[in-house]
């Protein structure tokens, strides 16, 4: 008889070896590192205007861990270290929250464009956002395109970076996924990834800082 806890709609706990690996790998060092990563994603969610508690980064890490422990998210310890799986789950959740927050802003923007009677409220809201460090849609669009262009320019000069960027554009972010779809060797992947990351250091300071704001607009 089929196990109802394994049909996807009623997820059950992961296999014992995965639970054992999780217990072993979820060390203080991993908790600390995952929390630091989550802090950066939490900032982006807050800037997107999504309401979050003050300990949101801690919530993100715990929920990611609990989702593996409870079997609502999968993890194969033979393929990915726990830390990277936690980060990809956190990224996935925060990406959707940023999108939902941005969707709300778009609705407001569209309403304002079509209803002059309430336009003043939206203008006031945008002004409040600007005073809180938000970027105007026009400036943000220009910054987004600058980052896209910088990545594309790198891709044009660097074949291996280009295939990694293409994988990212398709939604593959975990190292083993990117290795699988690009057929790069681990060494080639690591080297190309470092070249891509060096781009972040070469970005003008205002653009790098704007990167934090950028994702509040990512739809």
């Amino acid at each position: 008889m089929a196990d109802p806890t394994r049909d996807g709609s009623h997820p059950g706990p992961p296999p014992p070896d995965a639970l054992r690996a999780l217990d072993e790998q979820y060390t203080d060092a991993v908790r600390d590192q995952a929390h630091r990563y989550a802090e950066q994603r939490a900032k982006r969610v807050r800037r997107a205007g999504w309401p979050t508690p003050s300990n949101y980064a801690e919530e993100l890490v715990h929920d990611a861990l609990a989702s593996i422990w409870m079997g609502t998210r999968r993890w194969d310890p033979r393929r990915t270290p726990l830390y990277f799986r936690l980060c990809s789950i956190i990224k996935d959740r925060t990406w959707h929250e940023i999108k939902r927050a941005q969707g709300r802003k778009h609705v407001l923007f569209d309403i304002a464009a079509n209803d002059s009677a309430i336009g003043g409220d939206v203008e006031a809201s945008l002004a409040a956002g600007a005073s809180a460090g938000d970027l105007s849609p026009v400036v943000l669009a220009a910054l987004t395109l600058r980052v896209v262009e910088a990545l594309r320019e790198l891709g044009n000069q660097d074949e291996r970076a280009r295939v990694i960027l293409a994988a990212w554009a398709e939604g593959f972010i975990e190292r083993d996924e990117v290795l699988a779809v690009t057929r790069l060797t681990p060494h080639a992947y690591d080297a190309a990834r470092q070249r891509i990351l060096r781009l972040a250091k070469r970005l003008p300071p205002e653009l790098r800082e704007a990167g934090h704001d950028l994702l509040r607009r990512v739809s």
Partner: peptide, 13 residues
């Protein structure tokens, strides 16, 4: 493009 940019900042983080 937006997924690519998000992945870029994910790697930076």
């Amino acid at each position: 493009e937006l997924r690519m940019v998000d992945a870029f900042f994910h790697e930076v983080a």
